[in-house]
Nucleic acid binder design. Structure first.
Length: 269
DNA sequence: GCTGTATGCAGAT
DNA sequence: TCTGCCTACAGCG
């Protein structure tokens, strides 16, 4: 699930797996040949996540490898000595005992320092980073007429939230997705920020998006959606009863992305 | 086996 | 607002 928690978990896994090791690096698919060659035979640099972006340092170079998984990219780390190449592997990292295969990313490229700065400058605060400043996000939200649902998905406002966390966060705080940013109360925002920090930390540790409070997951109104992605109040539960009030969950498309909410529970400002 | 769909985003229109 | 990227899986027959 490539929302922010996936990238932070991935950075952790890569650092634990390859940290301090000299790695072999290649691009079996052939679309990252030069970048992979630069990394090949070097000691693995530290991997760091910023929102949905992953940056990996390269020993002996100022450049960094930038990876963005997009909608269906996957970076699979397997504890084996050898693994046949299956499908289109953009980037493969190996050391004795471990293989990491990157497939289907939106971006896998070398970035020079100025390009890294440009990338990071256009990201809002990331709830999973200790240095994140929620006031930066608040100032953008408070000044905007755009719907809060749109703002939460804007990586320049907050970095790392995706469609699942957006839907679930709005539900957990009873906020109408259509509410303009400027209509949101500061106290509500403060509570939402604290909540998303905790929810995404759970996402990192469990490797899944879990947002349903235990007391709601087996309520009389229905069952939380359970899937590969986790468990949800409203995400992908269109027409199923709201876990809290029983009203059928609503679904629509906003800015080309699916949106889910409970018309009864979500009226807060 | 085929079809539809997806947690994202850039670039064209 | 629409299209393309490029992968995996659920659901269907």
């Amino acid at each position: 699930m490539p929302e922010g928690h996936t990238l932070h978990r991935l950075a952790r896994t890569l650092n634990r797996t390859f940290g301090s090791h000299v790695v072999e690096s290649s691009s079996p698919q052939g679309r990252f040949t030069a970048g992979a060659a630069l990394v090949d035979g070097t000691r693995f640099g530290r991997a760091q996540a910023w929102g949905k972006h992953l940056l990996v340092g390269v020993e002996g170079s100022q450049d960094m490898v930038h990876v963005h998984l997009g909608l269906y990219g996957k970076f699979a780390v397997t504890k084996v000595d050898d693994l046949p190449v299956v499908g289109q592997v953009r980037w493969r990292l190996t050391r004795p005992g471990a293989v990491a295969d990157l497939r289907g990313p939106t971006a896998c490229e070398l970035l020079a320092p100025p390009a890294v700065d440009i990338l990071l400058d256009r990201l809002g605060p990331d709830p999973l980073r200790k240095d994140a400043d929620p006031d930066r996000a608040w100032r953008r939200i408070h000044a905007s007429r755009a719907p809060i649902a749109t703002l939460l998905m804007d990586q320049a406002v907050i970095a790392g939230i995706g469609n699942v966390y957006r839907a679930e966060l709005l539900f957990r705080h009873g906020v109408d997705p259509a509410l303009p940013g400027r209509g949101l109360d500061e106290a509500t925002w403060a509570a939402m920020w604290d909540d998303i920090v905790e929810l995404m930390k759970i996402g990192v540790s469990k490797g899944r998006i879990l947002t349903v409070r235990p007391e709601d997951s087996r309520g009389p109104a229905g069952r939380a959606r359970r899937g590969r992605g986790g468990e949800s109040y409203v995400y992908r539960r269109t027409d199923l009863p709201c876990l809290v009030c029983g009203t059928p969950v609503a679904g629509s498309v906003l800015g080309g992305r699916n949106l889910f909410w409970c018309p009864t529970c979500q009226h807060r400002r």
